[in-house]
Each structure stands twice: as C-alpha cells, then as structure tokens.
Computed example of a mutant assay.
Amino acid sequence: MGMMSEFKKFAMKGNVVDMAVGIVIGAAFGKIVSSFVNDILMPPIGMLIGGVDFSDLAFTLQEAVGEEAAVTINYGSFIQTALDFIIIAFAIFMVVKGMNRMKKKEEAKPAEPPKPTNEEVLLAEIRDLLKKD
C-alpha cells in the first residue's frame, strides 16, 4: 500500500474528521470566550475597582532606556487569560457532563438476552422430544 493511499485511508476515518471539526469549533469558541472576557466581562469589573483597564496592569521591572522597551510583568493580561481558561474549562466540563449523562441513559437500557447457541437449541429440541414420550 502506497503512502498516499495509506494517508487517505487514515484521513477518511470518522475519528480523524470528528477530531478536526472539534478542533476548529474549539478554536472559534476560544475566540468568542476571549472576546466575552475582554470586551464584556472585564470593563465592568475594571470600572468597579476604580476604572482600571486590566490590560494596562503591570509591574515595571526596568524602565525603557533609549530604544529598549520597558521590562514589565503584565499581570492584568494574565488575569484576563486565566478568566478565559476558567470559562472555557467550565463550558467543556458542562459538555462532557451532558455527554456522559446521555451515555448513562443508553447504558441503562436493558440489553437483549443473548440468543441461544445452536447447541442449546438442539438440546432444547431433544428435551422437548423426550418429554413427549
């Protein structure tokens, strides 16, 4: 089997396509959550603590010297990124929880009893014939 046909077989498996769709949707969801945190959630929080823009919060370790930029620890950006992560993690948790609940409902359905094997059918027929006599 050639490399291209092997790759085509791999790429056309359902799991790979599902995973690719999940990654694309996850990336888009991440952008939505980042916008939600940066544009909707953080401005009112900043206003409540005194009109602070979180993206401006930083500790300056070294002031700018000539053409060199200042060295800062941008803890405001870190807070925004941490909130992004918490919201995304919670949303994923809720999706997984819902999927697990649906799986449990499927598992809770009683399974059909297994069909008797040919030997069991034959023995039942012999038993029934012996009862008639």
Results as ranks from 00 to 15, higher is better:
Tyr75Trp: 02
Gly98Ser: 06
Pro114His: 03
Phe29Thr: 00
Ala70Val: 06
Lys103Pro: 07
Ile87Phe: 07
Glu106Ser: 13
Asn118His: 04
Met47Phe: 14
Glu119Pro: 01
Asp56Gln: 13
Ile45Ser: 03
Ser77Ala: 11
Thr72Cys: 01
Ile49Val: 09
Lys9Arg: 13
Gly46Val: 10
Phe29Tyr: 09
Ile73Gln: 03
Ala124Met: 05
Lys132Ile: 10
Leu130Met: 12
Ile32Cys: 01
Ile88Lys: 10
Thr81Ala: 10
Lys103Ser: 12
Val52Tyr: 05
Ala28Ser: 13
Gly50Cys: 00
Ile92Met: 06
Ile73Glu: 01
Lys131Gln: 07
Ala28Val: 11
Ala124Val: 06
Gly22His: 04
Leu61Pro: 04
Phe36Asn: 01
Glu120His: 00
Pro113Tyr: 10
Asn15Ile: 14
Ala69Thr: 08
Val71Thr: 06
Ile23Pro: 07
Lys105Glu: 14
Glu6Ala: 14
Asp133His: 10
Glu120Val: 03
Phe90Glu: 13
Leu57Glu: 00
Ser34Arg: 02
Phe90Tyr: 11
Ile45Gly: 00
Gln62Thr: 08
Phe29Asn: 03
Val96His: 08
Val17Lys: 13
Arg101Glu: 15
Leu130Gly: 04
Phe7His: 06
Phe10Asn: 04
Ser5Asp: 15
Ala11Asp: 03
Gly2Pro: 08
Phe10Cys: 05
Ile49Met: 13
Gln62Leu: 15
Arg127Asp: 11
Glu119Tyr: 08
Leu83Arg: 02
Phe10Asp: 01
Phe78Asn: 09
Phe90Cys: 06
Arg101Val: 13
Ile86His: 01
Met19Leu: 15
Lys31Ser: 15
Tyr75Arg: 06
Lys97Tyr: 10
Gly46Phe: 05
Val71Leu: 10
Val24Ser: 08
Asn100Leu: 12
Ile25Trp: 02
Ile79Pro: 01
Ser5Cys: 12
Met94Ile: 13
Val37Tyr: 01
Val33Asn: 02
Met19Glu: 09
Met47Ser: 07
Val17Glu: 01
Lys104Ile: 15
Ala27Lys: 10
Asn100Ser: 08
Met19Gly: 04
Glu67Cys: 08
Phe85Ile: 11
Gly76Trp: 00
Leu48Glu: 08
Val121Asp: 02
Ala124Tyr: 03
Val71Asn: 11
Thr81Phe: 12
Lys97Val: 07
Ala108Arg: 12
Asn118Pro: 00
Lys132Leu: 08
Val16Lys: 04
Lys103Arg: 05
Ala20Leu: 06
Lys115Thr: 04
Ile25Phe: 08
Gln62Asp: 08
Pro44Thr: 07
Thr72Pro: 02
Asp133Ile: 11
Ile79Ala: 11
